[in-house]
Every structure is written in C-alpha cells, then in structure tokens.
C-alpha cells in the first residue's frame, strides 16, 4: 500500500518538473513548484508509514515544516509575480534574454 504513495510522489515530482519548464505563465510555474513539493511530502509520509508499529513521527514533523516553508515561498512568489506584472505588463518571463547584453540596470 505504501508503495502506491511512493510512486504517486515520484509521478507528482516529475509532473511538477515538467510543468515548471514547459509552462510559460508564472502562476503556473509557481503551481508546478507546489506540485513538486507535494510529491516530496508524499514520499516522506509514505516512508513514515513503512516499518512496524505506529507511523514514524519525524517525517510528519518534517512535512509540517515543509508545508509552512512552501506556503511562505508561494506567497512571496505570488507577490513577486504581481510586481513583475505591474512593472513589465506581462506575467511571463521574457524569452531568450539569456546571455544577451540586455539593456536596463
């Protein structure tokens, strides 16, 4: 039973990575990061259920900590997206800026 969750976690993580790279809209990227995070949390919780006796409390505590960190990062990211949108008018990152010598300082 726990292996189902382990594999589910792996799939969520992969989906998140894909969406983070493939999706252009910043809100979708931030959601993708959250999907990745959920994948990791699922793996941790599944690991806690393995073994004998009551579930291992340590991964539960780690996941609680991780959730709060994820909430904080998400909230800050959303605030940053709003600023990017307000200043540049777009909620996308400019394409191919890369190593070009772009203006602005």
């Amino acid at each position: 039973m726990t292996s189902l969750y382990l594999i589910g976690g792996a799939i969520l993580f992969g989906l998140g990575v894909h969406a983070l790279v493939a999706r252009a809209h910043l809100v979708l990227k931030v959601l993708a990061v959250n999907v990745m995070g959920s994948g990791v949390f699922m793996v941790l919780l599944a690991a806690a259920a393995g073994g004998e006796g009551d579930p291992d409390p340590v991964p539960h505590a780690l996941v609680l900590t991780g959730i709060v960190v994820a909430v904080s990062a998400t909230a800050f990211a959303l605030a940053l997206i709003l600023r990017v949108k307000a200043v540049t008018g777009r909620a996308h990152l400019p394409e191919g800026e890369g190593d070009a010598e772009s203006g602005g300082s």
């Binding site: 800050f76 990017v84 540049t88 990152l93 400019p94 800026e97 772009s102 602005g104 300082s105």
Partner: peptide, 18 residues
C-alpha cells in the same frame, strides 16, 4: 525595483525553488 531587477529576481526564485 526596475523591470530588469524584478524579472531577474523572478527567474532566480524559480531556479532557487527548483
């Protein structure tokens, strides 16, 4: 605060979270 800095910060944040 400028467009360049905010875009750079956004990129940095996504890379950092990944």
């Amino acid at each position: 605060g400028g467009a360049a800095a905010l875009t750079a910060a956004m990129r940095y944040l996504l890379v950092s979270l990944l």
